[in-house]
Amino acid sequence: MAEFSHTELLVGAVARMLEGLRHVAVGASSPIQGAAALLARALSGGRMRVSVLGSRTNNFFTDGGRELFDCAAQGRIDAFFLGGGQIDGQGNINLVGIGPYPKLDVRWPGSFGSAYLYFLVPRVILFREEHSVRTLVPKVDFISAPGTSAANIYRPGGPYALLTGKALFLFDRALRRFRLESVHPFSSVEDVAANTGFEYDRAPDIGPTPGPPAEWLALLRGRVRDEIAETYPQFAATALSAP
């Protein structure tokens, strides 16, 4: 088996969830997600479109800031990535802060487009590298975007998975709960349980999160590294090189 870094494992895990999609969009401050989308595009043989916010060469929008959102509302975006300072077991995400709103104890930048894209993009992958009881909480302090909605709310989109630095969960929209699917190397089922603040289900066959195959690693350390360097030069230089 090929040797790979922790970052390469995460990139590979995200890329695996993008296989077969037509259009993947990547938001701000998302180097791992951006690299994963560009890897998935490289593996798709040119069938996948990728829009990376902040990129000049990997961003084809020409109608201003609204186009991404209009595009999503029409069903033209298959996957997007969101995060959050807090994520809870119902898939609610909080990008606003900790404490009672509006006089919060800790203030974060704000909700960006989450309160909209979470409803409209079919496959929203939540990514939060810090896996702790501080980030994965029983209930978020502020709902930037809810994980699920009542049956009469127009909602073709929602959470698909939650990837952290320790594990991969899939979200079951009918049960409104996460299910632990796999655990990354150097973590364990017990470690995940001790560091997750919300209740979740367990897949019958929780295994190790598979690493990227050699062919993926070669792309990641070559073509994809060059492509992502335009938007995230630091990340490309430090995180995507052979160990």
């Binding site: 709103y101 909700s111 909209y116 894209l117 979470y118 409803f119 709902i143 009542a150």
Partner: peptide
Amino acid sequence: PLRGLIGSDILAF
């Protein structure tokens, strides 16, 4: 009119 937002605290506030 705009889609999304319903059930968020953004809308609540």
